[in-house]
Design a binder for these strands. Structure first.
Lengths: 139, 139
DNA sequence: GATTGATCGATGCACCTGCATGCAAAACCC
DNA sequence: GGGTTTTGCATGCAGGTGCATCGATCAATC
């Protein structure tokens, strides 16, 4: 049976995580922008170059079917482009389009605001470090 | 623009929260048990007695429409009973049934295991306190 | 180089959630 | 009291998620 402190930490972890995600999503939606997952993908493709769904899936920890449909929507929206993969004909190369990069850039201010209001507005610098350290052990 | 530590903390918060929730849900489902939200409601009704949806909603921070359907399913499953509210005929009193209490008890070991593996297996006691404190400031 | 098994990605289905709205009862206000 | 606003809960609809499974391709073993 978990101790009281563990229960407290658990409850707050679940709650804080849900709230944070929800707020970020709401802020983006209010600005007419896509959800946070899109940002993560756009960012990954921008930083690390075009890659296969499988790799994105592992790096971001998204379920296979979720990512598949996510990419389909983003492709539909013109933010990424799917190209046939020459070395493995099952796969596809998912590349960031110019429009995709523009979208990522457009999302950043709003996304960043959510992060600031969740983390920086409530924790001073050394508390942020503490939180990051504790959370690393959990994830 | 958020600092690097804030970004790190944010990412881990989102990730750890999602992972924790997902693991708890998966564990319960694997044991043929209802999802974690059900536990929270059953627990609340057990501890604090029968009450109206509105109160549950505020205490647990659930969206109104989510709770409405959640309670409908739990009622359907016989875990709670909806009784007309005498003091406000719009409302209903949601009460825990014996079957509901049994379900809550049956869920606890599995739920507790998820909490232990997420918190207690990875943090020693004073780290748990630190985490709880940091998360309180965020939530 | 053929068979067998594993991996990649898509998708049908059922369920769940978010949003907007509806209806009914209460609270407010003149 | 009569009309307006607010509150409590339910729900139709659109969209997202999880699960299982599929077709296609690759890899491994013989």
């Amino acid at each position: 049976m978990p101790g009281a402190v563990s229960l407290l930490a658990w409850g707050r972890l679940i709650d804080a995580g849900a709230r944070a995600r929800h707020k970020a999503r709401a802020g983006l939606k209010a600005a007419g922008l896509p959800p946070p997952e899109w940002y993560d993908i756009l960012q990954l493709l921008g930083r690390h170059g075009a890659q296969r769904p499988r790799d994105i899936q592992h790096k971001l920890g998204i379920e296979q079917y979720t990512l598949s449909r996510l990419l389909a929507r983003m492709d539909q929206a013109g933010l990424v482009a799917m190209q046939p993969c020459t070395v493995d004909r099952r796969g596809q190369i998912t590349a960031l389009t110019a429009q995709g990069e523009a979208c990522r850039a457009a999302m950043w201010p709003t996304y960043a605001a959510a992060i600031r209001s969740a983390i920086e507005a409530r924790l001073d610098p050394d508390e942020r470090v503490q939180l990051a350290v504790m959370l690393e052990k959990i994830a």
